[in-house]
Design a protein around this nucleic acid. Structure first.
Lengths: 147, 147
DNA sequence: GGTACTTCTTCAAGTAACTTGAGGTTCAAG
DNA sequence: CTTGAACCTCAAGTTACTTGAAGAAGTACC
């Protein structure tokens, strides 16, 4: 079966890869995807290679890689000469960022939780003005609640 | 001590609240801060009330509330009539979002970790083209690694 | 072959939440 | 009175797309 014979319209490709059609045009515009083949009438058409490339992009984006990182990864993914270690390093760097973000969010969770609890205990139902949340918010962080 | 006598320049206010001066002008422009008082020469000047309000905004932003949420919280914070419960609900809703994001990031962490590990074990040093990461990325998620 | 309907086309502008830059003015110090 | 920092406005850039307008292409049915 010759995979290059089966072509997709932009809509079909979008559905197959799980993105929207404007996103595909956008990726073409910024050079993540090469200029698409066109039908006689001027509409874009795609083959399985295009689907592979777009899927790759989509997955990378889902992993939280930036467009610029994806650009680098795409270049690495077709390179025979450059080292696979570069790829791992980009992933490792991103992993570090994710872990940093995780730590921040965990702290944030505790602080929000403390807000909600304290509001429930000490002022729920009172006038908005007097809510403990506002008293905390209007003065710079003294890290009173949960370290 | 009359706090209204001590005025800040925009730079001093920025430093005191921990934001940048363009950010303060931006907040004024979008109506989060009221139009600033001006000196004879046309420069902005602020008092302690302004610092309180800006600090409040900054803290909310650090907590991850959107500008629109901050707008609501600001209105609630000066309201005598509206219920404090509204405030708690906004915080609770945000807490839910944070927890959702946390769950996503934890999964992401595991998946990235698996990439890095597998790349180290099975292909580090080989040509970029052959990296296990690319093989995974170019085909739609089958949740093989750490589901 | 006509007609209706979906999907496609381009181009421009909108989104969040600021940041950056250009070109010019005000203020405080010496 | 001059110097240099900090201020002013206005416009455009950032990220990664989304939304909208106005019109052309493709396809199904009669």
């Amino acid at each position: 079966m010759n995979l290059h014979i089966r072509v997709f319209t932009i809509g079909a490709l979008a559905k197959a890869a799980g993105v929207t059609t404007p996103t595909i045009r956008y990726y073409e515009e910024i050079g993540l995807l090469p200029p698409a083949q066109r039908t006689a009438g001027g509409q874009r058409s795609y083959d399985h290679d295009d689907l592979g490339r777009l899927t790759f992009i989509k997955q990378c984006r889902d992993f939280g890689f930036s467009i610029d990182q994806v650009r680098v990864l795409l270049n690495l993914s077709i390179s025979t000469s450059r080292d696979c270690v570069e790829t791992r390093d980009i992933a490792q760097q991103h992993l570090d960022e994710v872990r940093h973000k995780l730590a921040e969010l965990r702290l944030l969770e505790r602080r929000l939780e403390s807000f909600v609890t304290r509001c429930n205990v000490s002022c729920a139902g009172g006038p908005g003005q007097d809510c403990v949340i506002f008293k905390d918010m209007a003065t710079p962080a003294k890290s009173g609640c949960c370290g």
